[in-house]
Structure formats: structure tokens, C-alpha cells
Amino acid sequence: MNELIALINTDPEESTVQKFFEKHPASIIGTAYALSNTLIAKLPLGVDFVTDFTWVNPRSGPTYVYLIEIEKPSKSIFNKNDSFTQSFNHAYGQVEDWLGWYARNQDAFRDILVPLKSHNDLPPFFAVRGILIYGRDSELSNNRREERWVQKGLSNPFIEVRTYDGWAREKNNTIPPHDILSDYLSTVHYSNRSYINKDLQKVNI
């Protein structure tokens, strides 16, 4: 058992899980390369939206940006009739809104990332993807629910959906006590066009 599973088994609040991921950024990023080795917490998108986590993944082709929404792990995915709950649909819709905001504000988004890297080192556009981490595997308790969960993951190629259990399995090798790659990663917050670490110090990246 990794520490994320141990934590969510205690029925924590979303804020507690947020703090866990901020303390252990490799639990979000995994083994992939992150721009400036940085995970961004609570990144504002204009005045209407704030992501829980964001990170930038330069590749040989497009540069990917991941916008991540987490919710309290005990929130229900399904109603008794096996339809998605209003809370789940709202969380999913929020990720859709983020992608829509990026599509309308690509230059503004690029400016937000400039403190991570100079203008010359950033591409003119990004391949932006959303991730929703929501609920527990125990809710995938019958074939109808499993099919609807899989279909939801396929319904939008730009948005991934994961239960906390599924996320913990996928990232097991970078979640304590197995987080051997975490030392070079840091978590920052965006404030006044700068990135600030947890000690409220401006980060010169």
C-alpha cells in the first residue's frame, strides 16, 4: 500500500489531499519530464477558474500541459440508478471549461507560463489536456457502472478520468514510500505574475 491509498482510506477532506500532492509533486507528475521540474498548485485561468494542479511536459513534438482537478475522495461517482451524480458531472464540466478557456486565451495562457521559462523557450501553442481524479474503485461495483466509467474516459480525447485508487496504482512508483524520483521536483503557486514556493519565496527558475 502506498501513502496515497493509506490517506484516502481515512476519508480526508479535499484540502488534505491537495496538501499531500503539493508535498509530493512526483505523485502527480510521475516519471515524466516537467518544465523547470515544477508542479504548479492553484493556477488561476483568468478571473473565473483555478486549477488544482498544472504542469508542463515538453516533448520532441508538441508541448503538453496538464490541468488537473481533484475532489474529496469520498464524493460519489454514481447515483443509485447508476447515472453519474450531479457533483461528478460538475467536476467534469469544470475541466471542460478550463479547456475552453485555453482555446479562447492561448496568448494569455502562454504569458502565465513565462515565469517558468523565457518567451523564447516556450512554444507558440500547447497541447492542453485535462485530468479529473474523482471517487473510489469501490463504486465501480457492477457492469453498467464499469461500462459508463470507461465510456466517460473515451467520450472526450482531451480529458482523462481516474479514480483515486486507479491514480495510486498508476503512480505507485512515485508515491511515498516509493518516491525515489521526487527530490528534483518542487511545487509552486502563481502570484502576481511570479511563482512562489511553499515558504512564500519567489522562485527564480
Rank of each mutant, 00 (worst) to 15 (best):
G30R: 06
T31H: 08
A32Y: 15
A32T: 11
Y33L: 12
Y33A: 13
A34H: 00
L35S: 00
L39E: 11
L43W: 10
P44Y: 13
P44V: 03
G46N: 12
G46W: 13
V47Q: 13
V50D: 03
D52S: 03
T54N: 10
T54I: 06
T54W: 11
N57E: 15
P58A: 10
P58W: 03
S60P: 05
P62F: 11
T63V: 12
V65E: 14
Y66S: 03
E69Y: 05
E69I: 07
I70W: 09
E71K: 09
E71H: 03
K72H: 11
S74F: 15
S76M: 07
F78R: 02
F78D: 09
N79E: 07
N81V: 04
N81Q: 10
S83D: 09
S83T: 14
F84W: 05
T85Y: 13
Q86F: 07
Q86H: 08
F88W: 14
N89K: 12
N89D: 14
H90I: 15
Y92W: 04
Q94E: 06
W98T: 00
L99G: 01
G100F: 06
W101Y: 00
A103F: 02
A103E: 08
Q106Y: 02
Q106K: 15
D107F: 14
D107L: 15
F109A: 03
F109Q: 01
D111N: 11
I112E: 09
V114P: 05
L116C: 07
L116P: 09
K117N: 11
K117A: 15
S118F: 09
N120C: 00
N120W: 14
L122Q: 02
P123F: 08
P123L: 06
P124M: 03
R129I: 05
I131R: 08
L132W: 05
L132F: 11
I133L: 12
I133Q: 02
D137W: 01
D137H: 07
S138V: 12
S138N: 08
S138Q: 09
E139R: 06
L140K: 01
N143V: 07
E146A: 07
E147V: 08
R148K: 14
W149L: 06
V150Q: 11
V150P: 01
Q151H: 10
G153W: 04
L154K: 12
S155I: 02
S155V: 01
N156Y: 05
N156I: 10
P157C: 02
I159A: 08
I159N: 09
V161K: 00
Y164D: 02
D165V: 04
G166H: 04
W167S: 08
E170T: 10
E170P: 07
N173I: 14
P176D: 01
P177E: 08
